[in-house]
Nucleic acid binder design. Structure first.
Lengths: 194, 194
DNA sequence: CGTCTATTTGAATGTACTCAAAAGCGGTGG
DNA sequence: CCACCGCTTTTGAGTACATTCAAATAGACG
């Protein structure tokens, strides 16, 4: 069944009755994003929280020199949105792009609020989800301050097992925080070692 | 009244009746931390979420070389805890230290759960709180990847107005992610400019 | 096949770090 | 009250990690 994955995902933190599952599912829309297409672009207001059924998304932002910096990858079974924009309803600076053909479920901001009103336990679910995300981001700040590029690459491989193959060098470089050129040299060094 | 500050803080995101305020307050303990003392140390399980009434706290972690990296400062009207440890109930790596004599309110993990059970709107409050925090951390990751040390210093001054005076150079350096030596040289350059 | 973009390689540069030593500052005890 | 100790901050020289710019090579896609 199509909704098994998301129900399992939600059930990790809260438990739902059959009716609650039904209501939750009725709040979702399904969607598709072809490779290299955008679900959200810089300057837009984020209207949805996305859940990835298959494929993979990438959330990144451009700095003042136009350089891309990847904040998050969202493979199967992950949630993604521009929280800043979704919360404030103001234009954000995040781009959400499909790395490959991606099937999604979408929860609109309005339906999210409806869900919170009707089933307050979803406040709990999203609180826990955001807490996990916060812990990851904090760890990443520490990593950026204390690890070398090579170690951050290892850290990336651990956090997203198997994802490196699906991504371009540029995308990986933009996640670990180095230029594509330096990333290339780094790979050459690593290859020589082993 | 002692609890005005925290009630106002909470009321920014949820509204409470008199009785609810009373119950919330009954879940809190008050506490004090003298300058340079610790509320939490690396390896301990975080048992409380802290709210700062006056003074200032600092949350930092030591990397494998023993270098300190500051994740957060918590002046008056801020919340702080080691979310990782509080959520998992496992030993964390965060140290929470008082920068100066600090008065606090403390919400134990058990009372936090009680609060969630009795007043589910607090799930909402903490969800929003954590969302804001996540937005800040994401911004900080982008800053670390795209700004120079000098710009990150400006960014720090904006985020924590007036705090620079209360802190040692080493503490500021550990927040913006440079060595104390480099921070010192940076300050000298900045002073020369103006 | 040709074009466009991504990746690699190299040389020169820069930002920030390490190590070491000196100077400043704060607290403590005689 | 001041002398001393420990810690923080400053300064300098040498170094390292990562960037910039430029050119060559390889891949992807119509």
């Amino acid at each position: 069944m199509t909704f098994d994955l998301i129900i399992q995902n939600v059930s990790r933190y809260i438990s739902l009755t059959r009716e609650e599952e039904g209501f939750f599912i009725s709040m979702l829309q399904s969607g598709h994003a072809g490779k290299k297409t955008f679900l959200l672009q810089e300057g837009e207001v984020c209207r949805y929280t996305y859940f990835v059924m298959s494929g993979c998304l990438r959330g990144y932002s451009n700095d003042k020199n136009g350089v891309e910096h990847t904040l998050i990858f969202a493979p199967r079974d992950w949630w993604i949105s521009d929280i800043y924009s979704a919360v404030t309803q103001k234009p954000g600076m995040l781009n959400i792009e499909a790395i490959e053909d991606t099937e999604l479920l979408m929860l609109s901001n309005e339906n999210r609020e409806l869900l919170f009103t009707r089933l307050p336990k979803f406040e709990r679910f999203f609180r826990i989800l955001v807490e996990k995300s916060l812990v990851n981001m904090q760890q990443r700040i520490l990593d950026n301050m204390s690890l070398t590029a090579e170690e951050r690459y290892q850290s990336f491989c651990t956090r997203y097992p198997g994802l490196a193959d699906k991504l371009t060098s540029k995308q990986i470089a933009s996640y670990i925080g180095v230029t594509p050129e330096f990333y290339s040299k780094m790979r050459a060094r690593l290859a020589k070692k082993s």
